[in-house]
Design a protein around this nucleic acid. Sequence first.
DNA 1: TAACGCGGTATCGAAAGCATACCGTGACGG
DNA 2: CCGTCACGGTATGCTTTCGATACCGCGTTA
Lengths: 114, 114
Amino acid sequence: MARTCPSRVVLHRIGARWTVFVVNALEPGPKRFVELKTHIQGITPKVLTETLRTLERDGLVLRTDHEESPPRVEYELTALGRSLLEPLRAVRLWAEAHVPEIQAANAAAVARGR
Amino acid sequence: MARTCPSRVVLHRIGARWTVFVVNALEPGPKRFVELKTHIQGITPKVLTETLRTLERDGLVLRTDHEESPPRVEYELTALGRSLLEPLRAVRLWAEAHVPEIQAANAAAVARGR
DNA sequence: TAACGCGGTATCGAAAGCATACCGTGACGG
DNA sequence: CCGTCACGGTATGCTTTCGATACCGCGTTA
């Protein structure tokens, strides 16, 4: 668990606020910028751009500019990106399964006077 | 994938920078504040406190102040917290397995002139 | 009685996130 | 030919969070 441990860096990337949502959104297949933006409700274009650029640098996402008019840019998962889907699905399923417990815990904490 | 979707909130929590490390550090059993701080190299006391308080509110971690002298406070995972270990382990293993590919992708991106 | 260890706060500057507005290009309608 | 629109972003400014460093109150111990 040293600061320099590379897996720490990787986990830091994965832990970045929006990567999980972007990768999940790309699961069914390639998507365009605007599609991603509307699918992941609440993300701003700036943050989406940054997230996609980071994922591209890390080799998880492939960006294809078709150089057409009107512009068409598609983002899709690479093999590496798809390999991340399985562990992420486990986390997402956990989250969905345990939302009630967490909300109950929060409510209890508030009731105790937070 | 609405903004209000509770699983989004939960994933946001999990995505917080240090939760993964704290939960993993608590896997073997209860730990004291200083133990956690030295084990998770690089975390500052402030951030560790905040992370632990959040995990406590969410019902993932139990804080036990033994009211002794010298002070002894122990943190341990609840059943809910332990249930998170399995999905997190999957993500950690993925990270460890794919570090070389990600580093290679980064190096390639740099070589292309970033 | 002075120094130390524990479990934290306090303070301040840096970085990341977010909302909002805007832009260049080329298609398209009239 | 001229105004408008969609796409894929960028620019700007503000708020929240992160991070580094310093410090504190208490009780124990030397």
